[in-house]
């Protein structure tokens, strides 16, 4: 079950999206997310859907792979939708036990659910097509100007890339510890919420201990390989804008303009 979480993982294949400059992808994701929250009408959403479908097709990543990432957030999605359904004021559709579902509420719930789904799939397309190293390189470059005000950009991006690298390893470890404890009679599945959470404690302690041990090892390995922060470091894959990147920016601009036009005048 744990291995099914795909959010934040790289899918290795070759596609136009994979080759794109990570800065374009970062900016693109940001524009896409903003475009989702700009309007409440159906037309811009239809365009967002078309755009997303085109991007998914371009990425050569199997669609099933992306959907799996949604499973992890389905509860959050449901809660948000339900709250929207009940708590939005407006024309009542049904009411029971003193709760009312309003027409506006249903619409809001559908929109918020769609927004979240688009947002998650949209950003997982980015993480699936960009290696964490590229991603953090992109972030480092984009946030570069902040260095002037002494924000440790390189350190932040390094931490992020290491965190991303260790997600699958720690997940695997959690799985292993869980199995080891289940083999000795630990019960993670039965009982109420509080009981389940309490059952997690013996899982978290060894996980934390091992994470710290790994961190220590990794720090040593990095030092042994002459890591001394961002200063004087060169890049194996320096970021350069190519023709396709410019084209991608144009496509993004057209998309954003399209959303605004559709939302404002239709």
């Amino acid at each position: 079950m744990i291995r099914e979480i795909t959010f934040g993982q790289y899918y290795q294949t070759d596609s136009a999206l994979h080759r794109l400059n990570p800065r374009v992808k970062l900016v693109g994701t940001m524009i896409y997310i903003i475009s989702l929250f700009l309007f409440k009408e159906a037309a811009p959403f239809a365009l967002a859907l078309v755009f997303l479908a085109a991007i998914i097709k371009l990425s050569h990543v199997p669609f099933k792979y992306m959907i799996r990432g949604l499973k992890a957030v389905i509860v959050l999605l449901l809660i948000t939708a339900v709250f929207n359904m009940f708590l939005t004021r407006g024309e009542a559709l049904v009411s029971f036990w003193g709760l009312t579902i309003t027409k506006e509420g249903v619409i809001a719930a559908v929109f918020i659910a769609l927004r979240l789904i688009f947002l998650i799939i949209g950003s997982s397309v980015m993480t699936l097509t960009t290696t964490p190293n590229q991603l953090t390189d992109g972030l480092e470059k984009l946030m570069g100007p902040l260095k002037v005000i002494k924000v440790p950009i390189h350190e932040i991006s390094m931490m992020m890339s290491i965190a991303l690298r260790f997600i699958p390893i720690l997940l695997e470890e959690t799985d292993k510890i869980m199995k080891a404890q289940m083999a000795r009679g630990a019960d993670f599945d039965s009982g109420n919420m509080i009981k389940k959470i309490k059952a997690m404690v013996p899982l978290l302690v060894p996980l934390f201990v091992s994470a710290f041990r790994r961190a220590n090892d990794l720090a040593m390995a990095m030092e042994a390989r002459c890591y001394q922060g961002g200063e004087g470091r060169t890049k194996m894959k320096p970021l350069k804008y190519g023709k396709s990147d410019v084209l991608a920016y144009v496509v993004l601009a057209v998309y954003l303009a399209g959303v605004i036009v559709l939302g404002k005048w239709l």
Binding site: Y10, Q12, T131, P132, N133, S161, I162, L164, R165, I169, R214, D217, L218, A221, M222, R225, C226, Y227, Q228, G232, R233, T234, K235, M236, K237
Partner: peptide, 22 residues
């Protein structure tokens, strides 16, 4: 597992030379 920094083999091998400013 605890000494590979890169997410792709070649990026990891490049980590040392990058630090040296090659």
């Amino acid at each position: 597992d605890n000494q590979i920094i890169g997410q792709i083999v070649e990026e990891d091998v490049g980590f040392g030379p990058e630090n040296l400013g090659v």
